[in-house]
Computed example of a mutant assay.
Amino acid sequence: MTEAKYLKIARIIQNRIKDGTYQAQEPLPDQEALAQELGVSRLTVKKALDGLERKGLLYKQSGLGTFVLGDIPIQTDHDTSASVFSGLQEEIGEEKITSDIIKFAIEFPSEQVQKNLRLKSSDPVYEVLRLRRLEANPFVLEHTYMPVKLVPNLDETVLKGSIYHYIHHNLGLKFGTAYRKIRASKATAWDKKYLEAKQDDPILELEQIIWLTNGHPIEYSTSRNRFDTRNYVVFQNKDF
């Protein structure tokens, strides 16, 4: 999988923030200037800046530009934005994330999956259970349902990489809306087996439904991780 241009630009800007090229509370060069310097479109720069804003590295002031926020004392390496939908490989790095396929099947949906994905009982779905590893260590246990009619030709090669990359780049589909619910849970037998969770370890579960821009639900899934491996954060950059 080829890394998206906006991710490369985001990494360049993030490195400049880290090395002090761009100082805290100081404005960045405008998007047009960055686009010319880095040899990309203004849209690519905007997408990179939006991603860095969600991470809490930047903030925007209407009519003034984009500024470097600086260090956030409570931020940790385990933090990930609750509003990122690019997939783990793009978010963290293709070279760091691998996938163990625990289950991959085509079946008819349960009543709950029918309701969540607006399907008939005769509409086949993929059921995918994957253990995502971060640098070979158990990271996230993903349980995903997708309609076969919307995601044709899904196979193990795709599952070993990024499903979202396949949906966006190979199928040309775009996400439009998503609803996410984040809650604490007790460790299950699967969490103990695949996430190496202990009996009393709290588990963080993210349950979500994702719709395409045309309004069709394309994914219902849950993602579970141990309390000590991943946090979900929201960066608020509005008057409130």
Rank of each mutant, 00 (worst) to 15 (best):
A4P: 07
A4H: 10
K5M: 11
I12S: 02
I13C: 02
K18M: 13
D19H: 08
G20Q: 04
T21P: 07
E26A: 12
A33T: 15
Q36K: 12
L38V: 05
T44H: 00
V45T: 00
A48K: 00
L49E: 00
R54M: 08
G56C: 05
Y59C: 04
K60S: 12
G63W: 03
G63K: 02
Q75W: 13
T76F: 03
H78R: 15
T80R: 14
S83A: 14
L88R: 07
L88N: 10
G93E: 11
E95F: 07
I101S: 03
K103N: 13
K103V: 13
K103H: 10
K103E: 14
I106N: 04
I106S: 08
E111Q: 12
E111W: 07
Q112R: 11
N116W: 07
D123F: 07
P124F: 03
E127H: 07
R132E: 06
R133N: 10
N137S: 13
P138T: 03
F139E: 02
H143K: 08
H143G: 02
L150V: 03
V151I: 12
P152I: 01
L154F: 03
D155K: 02
V158A: 04
L159C: 07
S162C: 08
Y164N: 11
H165Q: 09
Y166F: 10
I167M: 07
H168P: 02
H169A: 13
N170A: 14
F175M: 13
F175C: 09
A178E: 14
A178W: 12
Y179P: 04
R180W: 08
R180D: 15
K181T: 15
I182T: 08
R183K: 12
R183N: 12
R183H: 13
K186T: 09
T188S: 15
K193D: 14
E196I: 10
Q199M: 14
I203E: 06
I209T: 14
I210D: 04
W211N: 10
L212K: 02
N214I: 09
G215Q: 07
H216L: 14
I218C: 04
T222G: 03
R226Q: 06
T229L: 12
T229G: 08
Y232R: 06
F235R: 11
N237K: 09
K238Y: 11
